[in-house]
Design a protein around this nucleic acid. Sequence first.
DNA 1: AACAGAAACTTGCGTTTGCAAGTATCCAGG
DNA 2: CCTGGATACTTGCAAACGCAAGTTTCTGTT
Lengths: 156, 156
Amino acid sequence: MFDLDQFLPYLINRAGVRLAVSFARDIADTGVALQEWRVLAVLAAAGEQRLSDLAGLTSIDLSTLSRLVTRMARQGLVARLNGNRDRRERRIALTEKGRGRTRAIIPTARRYERLALAGLSAAEEQTLKRLLRRVFANLEGLDRSPARFALRRDER
Amino acid sequence: MFDLDQFLPYLINRAGVRLAVSFARDIADTGVALQEWRVLAVLAAAGEQRLSDLAGLTSIDLSTLSRLVTRMARQGLVARLNGNRDRRERRIALTEKGRGRTRAIIPTARRYERLALAGLSAAEEQTLKRLLRRVFANLEGLDRSPARFALRRDER
DNA sequence: AACAGAAACTTGCGTTTGCAAGTATCCAGG
DNA sequence: CCTGGATACTTGCAAACGCAAGTTTCTGTT
């Protein structure tokens, strides 16, 4: 009826959850929660961001992120700067403390990546990453215009 | 410092979240939430399950799943059967209503999979799935509670 | 047979989540 | 230069989450 081992969303979810849960527990003693790490990693990689761009880059819902950033700012991990030209936007930036915490976690992050990729050749690793980027790109804009992709009942 | 486009956990997470969020919104009008769908899909694919096995198969935390199943049972989507040989366990099974709801959603699920895989050759599709299964397998046992690793009497 | 410990769930509790609605700011047409 | 929408966030609220602790039932040892 439905072979889960051949169903891509299932395979992505279970790999993602297993990786995330293990990693989150591993870094729990640093006081950084998983979603906080995602924010730190994006800011470290891409520099300071407007809240809405940060939401896109982290795959975290905007309203959730807004509160998450509030908590992180309270912990001193990030700073909310005012946008220069537009007073509606808040630019989120790493603080020194946030940068330090990020540096401390990166080796663990890399370790989990290596663990996940164990037994794959360099070529396979690149293929996997390329295909995941493609899958992501394929789904772009899906929420903006769901009707365009909707199949009617009789088109199935 | 940290190239996100080359970082596997990031790539898996963003592909998974984008797929999940879009799919969840698409099926929202069926009254089935994403995590409920995951339970339905696993039960449809693998037959009735003990709660703890279902937790493993769905990647949902056991305590969360316990309450989720309670809600689904109240909705009539699944039934909690008593385990035959062990009175501690509850076997979770699809009801007719649950099976119907699952059948109704499967075409949408398949549509999202096709969308995600657009532009990949059949070989690439198989490669992606194989590598994701491998990544999952690589991480096996990582998130088990430390107690599980405690030495048994004869190993001390 | 009795009891310690494990296994399979369930539940208490504080936290996090996400939708929807709200606020503040900007912009474009008249 | 005013006004009706966008844009960028924030917040109210109810639901969902996950850890830790609790309950019940089994199992192995002595």
